[in-house]
Amino acid sequence: MTESADTELAETTVPNESQSTLWPISLGGYQVDIAMFLRAVGIGWFMLFGWISNGVVGVSIGLVIAITAVMARPVIVVAVAHAGLLILLPDLTTLTAIIELGLFELGLLVLLLSEYLLDIPVVLLTAGFGLVFITSTVAVLVWAGQLAASFSLVFLIAALSYGIHRYERVSLGLVTDETDTTDHGASQFK
């Protein structure tokens, strides 16, 4: 067998040179890992507003979150940060507190998006879904209380996720028409 034939038969892969990636980025002549950059921005943002709203306590909580971010995945850090927010924002009855919560969440959104490769469609959809879910949760909270708000949120997202899953199965042609072969089904055509 010739060398060219060997080359043909061997497993080959052709990379796509036009692959778009935002990872890493160039910043001031330095290559910066965008995940680290986003985490720094998210935590810095959180500490800044912690300091503005609660002074030393806010900064301290920010530092605890920063230390957690070194050791754990961003999604875990976001969960821990919300525990911290319970201390920073004990009362959400004022407009100022709600605005502060929104600003904190912005920083945590940036932190959350550093979990995976930065992907513009994911960023936009996360912002969109996040806004819709938060609004609906607050709306149910005001209308029916805390317990109903939590359950409705989980149920809504589970239903939506299952719907997307079914849509995927159908659009990929993985769902076949099932024929009822039982006697009951057959009798309908008799």
Partner: peptide, 16 residues
């Protein structure tokens, strides 16, 4: 409501 907001953020991200 703060943990519920966090849940909405994390689960919204997963749906995205």
């Amino acid at each position: 409501v703060v943990p519920a907001v966090g849940a909405a953020l994390v689960l919204g991200w997963l749906v995205a």
